[in-house]
Write a protein that binds this DNA or RNA. Structure first.
Length: 913
DNA sequence: AGGGTTCCCTAT
DNA sequence: TTAGATAGGGAACCCT
């Protein structure tokens, strides 16, 4: 029997733990495979060999949950070691015994440490058996007499197997998706509570379809003549029962919803409990093992699991992957799917519901749309593909990849390799991350000070997977760091200090894993080139992306204070090599390479070409910026006035090649892109007019980094204005036009009448993340003001993690106190602080850009110019800038002129091409 | 007025 | 009780 592993857990049958693998068979059937015979265990480090004789029997006698104790030799987790250490492998009867006895074992005389005491049984099994999440496996069925029988498990195929083997890591079996969304009837202006507000509708969407329907709406209201995709119920109990029946019958692999974990699932569960207490008999069966719907609140998150299925709340996933101003389903659908969400405002719900006619029909359609949108977010955006690939590559089961962070995946890979090489891994540290502050920190990447201003012909190069390749190149690993044993011969000494052994003494586990991942990625990328089938291509694309994510996770993991394997020495070694590397790269280009010569469409280094050929097309190079793993090189031709895109790419590729030659394998500098013009304002703040080759054609675009256009705590008015200014400056090179544009925007804003045109509120809305408990804020914040005001008015306050929108209303109070809910402003016709928007939202960011050309705010803001002292001349500073090529003769009185002249002098040639 | 602190969000 | 890392700019407020 072949099937794809969707999920894994364990249960107890015949007094033994039995692993259960759930999945979907090659034939499309749902599968549950029992795997008996695997035993839970952990390791303990003993002080010396003598304990290997005495302790096993002692432990067996002391703990009746211990099945066996076996002396073994293992390496400790961290540090280069010449030889293995004596340890005990302690096997227990049940998985839960491990956490029960680990502390007591740790306390025994002769025991120094315990290892691998907090690995979930399912993970232990998958790791030891070499199985991966979402992999295709073949299970050889056991004899009937050995077969396990569990009548609660509902799957098409139920088998028992002692022998499960992985066949293929990336199969392509279609999954069944069910999305749902509930509607409640809340009290007037309040939040619905399961004890008082009934569930009135449940909307469901299916992929593939269910009995000919893509969607279905269950409605608890007596309506006549409804479509076939609406089901009518008199009682809420019957509707809920029907919902769980459909759930069982459709038998989805993936259960989808938007904000489902925090709202729909707890609500349904609590409401069912409430109704059952009142005499109803709803059985909320959702697991493939028959388990009922449950949820656990862990900190700020609610965890939901359904045995054998994947629970996929799209809200946190979308939050993670897309930078949006707001994450309401309405906004997310609009931004990501281009679809409008239909909505009944909360205060209209009762009216629409009680109507019983057209309005109720509308309400039902609106509800239907919600589950449709939740499902579309998964299918259209291919949200799950990435997680499936990560599951296959890391080995963790899909649900853990969806729920967890990078550390669980990194650890999964580490466990596999450490295990193979006889190394043990410590349990997760249980101290708070703040506790181990001893002034020890990781230093990060190096950011080169940019050459500020406008530049043309900037070639951008970057390091391919810098940190992973550094770890490989220098054999940086937990297993190679010199702690106690010192190897013979030379060692590797990073700039940060520390010492690592040479790979010929011992090749590190992490570098080996990285090498494997890097090679896999190259292979996948190679295969992609010859694949024409869209689905397969997307699958491979997801796989190479997953490999990239994992490659880059190991460094972060090593510096993560709560990781099992946390090593500041390792993390600092990586970044120190990184800093050294980018500085060396800069110096190499600025001082050694210095220039390239173009000849016959090829780029040569000066020493590759005879002097007489150096007559034309010499390009001078200068590194103008760099951040961690990238260098930006300004190319200025010595004789010709311009460089073609092809030539620029040649130059970039040649430099990258030359630099790469000087680096240890597999470090590699690569050509990334060409900026015809670039505007650099500060570190991490710049905009580029980029040209990239797509299917033999150059495509241009403007890329903005760090500036206000890409920041969510600035309003849309700012981004729109700034984007246009950048376009005018970068593409058209027309500062005058930009100035005129800004003036017109300022004028328009000055005359804004919110009462007449309420849509402008959208453009003036800023958002900020409500990120922590209210009490832990030490300073006033505009979004907190709004939360307080709204709480007072409605009693409702948003949950932590939500982005809070606000606008600034007119008044004399502090800025923070004038933050207000945009909806409230809209409904109550409040006046906005126009001056704030001009002086604080438009002018400062625009000035930072146009200031490069000597334009100041007095030029841009009519109002402030009138009040200004130097308002005689009609000639704007920009005009003098654009005329800078000509002789500037008059009007040197202003003081601003000098600035603009100086600024423009060095850049006067920029607009000539 | 100016420096220090807090907070947010982004770059890599 | 969880959730890879540091570097960096910039606004607003507070205190001296």
């Amino acid at each position: 029997m072949n099937f794809q592993i969707l999920d894994a857990d364990y249960s107890i049958y015949n007094d033994e733990p039995v692993v259960r693998l759930f999945g979907r068979g090659e034939d499309g059937s749902s599968v549950c495979c029992f795997v008996p015979g695997f035993e839970p265990y952990f390791y303990a480090n003993v002080a010396d060999d003598s304990y290997l004789q005495t302790l096993p029997q002692f432990i067996k006698n002391k703990f009746d949950t211990v099945k066996d104790v076996e002396p073994v030799q293992k390496f400790e987790p961290i540090g280069y070691q010449e030889s293995k250490k004596p340890m005990l492998k302690i096997t227990t009867f049940y998985p839960k015994n491990v956490p029960e006895i680990r502390d007591d074992v740790q306390g025994l005389e002769g025991i120094e440490d315990v290892y691998e005491t907090d690995i979930l049984f399912k993970n232990r099994f998958m790791i030891d058996k070499g199985l991966h999440g979402m992999a295709l496996v073949s299970a050889e069925p056991a004899s009937t007499s050995e077969s396990i029988n569990d009548r609660d498990v509902k799957c098409d195929n139920i088998i028992t197997s002692y022998n499960v083997e992985e066949i293929n890591k990336i199969p392509n079996i279609g999954l069944k998706y069910l999305a749902f969304d509930i509607e409640c009837l809340p009290p007037e202006g309040g939040m619905p509570e399961p004890e008082s507000s009934p569930i009135i509708m449940i909307s469901l969407s299916f992929e593939p379809e269910y009995k000919g329907n893509n969607t279905l709406v269950l409605v608890c209201k007596n309506l006549k003549d409804v479509e076939s995709d609406i089901e009518i119920f008199d009682e809420e109990e019957d509707m809920l029962t029907r919902f769980f029946d459909i759930f069982q019958e459709y038998d989805p692999d993936v259960v989808v919803g938007y904000n489902m974990n925090d709202f729909d699932i707890p609500y349904i569960k609590d409401r069912a409990d409430y109704l059952n207490n009142k005499g109803a008999s709803i059985v909320p069966r959702v697991g493939r093992d028959g388990r009922l719907m449950t949820y656990r609140r862990l900190g700020t998150r609610t965890m939901v699991s359904m045995t054998g299925r994947i629970v996929m709340d799209t809200l946190p996933l979308i939050r993670q992957q897309f930078s949006l101003k707001r994450y309401t389903l309405r906004n997310v659908s609009k931004e990501l799917l281009g679809r409008e969400k239909l909505d009944v405002e909360p205060h209209q719900m009762v009216e629409y519901w009680n109507d019983g006619g057209e309005k109720t029909k509308k309400f039902i359609d609106y509800a239907r749309r919600d589950s449709e949108l939740a499902l579309e977010l998964v299918t259209k955006l291919q949200l799950l593909d990435k997680y499936i690939a990560l599951s296959q590559v890391s080995g963790s089961v899909l649900q853990d990849v969806v729920d967890g962070g990078q550390s669980s995946m990194v650890e999964n890979l580490l466990f596999r390799e450490f295990g193979k090489q006889g190394r043990v891994i410590p349990p997760k540290p249980d101290n708070r991350p703040d506790d181990n502050e001893q002034g020890e920190e990781i230093k990060g990447g190096e950011v080169l000070e940019p050459k500020k201003g406008l530049l043309d012909n900037v070639v951008i190069l970057d390091y391919k997977s810098l940190y992973p390749t550094i770890m490989m190149a220098h054999n940086l690993c937990y297993t190679t760091v010199v702690v106690n044993d010192h190897p013979n011969g030379e060692t590797i000494n990073p700039p940060s200090g520390g010492e690592f052994v040479n790979p010929d003494v011992l090749k590190g586990i992490v570098p080996s894993i990285l090498e494997t991942l890097l090679n896999q990625r190259s292979e996948v990328k190679k295969k992609m080139k010859s694949i024409s089938d869209g689905d397969t291509y997307r699958m491979y694309d997801a796989t190479q992306l997953a490999l990239k994510i994992l490659l880059n996770s190991f460094y972060g993991y090593s510096g993560y204070a709560r990781a099992r394997l946390y090593s500041l020495t390792l993390a600092n070694a990586v970044t120190s090599y990184g800093r050294e590397n980018i500085q060396n790269t800069r110096d190499l280009i600025n001082n050694n390479i210095r220039k390239v010569v173009l000849k016959d469409n090829q780029a040569y280094l000066p020493d590759e070409i005879s002097p007489e050929d150096e007559s034309e097309d010499v390009i001078n190079l200068s590194v103008v910026y760099g951040d961690t793993d990238s260098v930006f090189i300004h190319c200025s031709p010595e004789y010709n006035n311009d460089i073609s895109l092809e030539d620029a790419e040649c130059v970039g590729t040649r430099i990258a090649e030359k630099v790469s030659q000087s680096l240890p394998d597999p470090m590699e500098l690569e050509f990334e892109s060409i900026a015809k013009r670039g505007l650099f304002l500060a570190k991490k703040r710049y905009a580029l007019w980029v040209f990239e080759q797509e299917n033999d054609e150059w495509e241009d675009s403007i890329k903005v980094k760090g500036m206000e256009t890409v920041r969510r705590d600035w309003c849309e008015l700012t981004s729109k204005t700034l984007n246009r200014v950048l376009e005018l400056v970068l593409k058209e090179g027309d500062v005058d036009k930009a100035v005129e544009y800004v003036k017109s925007v300022v004028n328009r804003v000055r005359n804004i009448d919110v009462q007449k045109d309420k849509d402008v509120i959208d453009d003036l809305t800023m958002t900020r993340l409500y990120s922590k408990k209210k009490d832990s804020y030490k300073s006033k914040q505009p979004h907190l003001t709004v939360i307080e005001k709204t709480k007072k008015r409605t009693g409702i306050s948003p949950p932590i993690g939500e982005r809070v929108p606000f606008v600034i209303v007119a008044g004399n109070d502090l800025f923070v106190n004038r933050a207000e809910d945009p909806e409230y402003v809209r409904e109550n016709n409040l006046t906005l602080d126009v001056d704030y928007y001009i002086k604080k939202q438009i002018l400062p960011p625009v000035e930072r850009i146009l200031g490069v050309f000597g334009v100041d705010s007095a030029t841009l803001d009519y109002d402030s110019r009138q009040k200004g002292l130097f308002d005689f001349s009609k000639t704007s500073e920009t005009e003098s800038f654009n005329n800078a090529n000509k002789e500037t003769t008059d009007e040197e009185d202003n003081g601003l002129k000098n600035q603009s002249k100086n600024g423009s002098k060095s850049q006067s040639s920029l607009f000539d091409f």
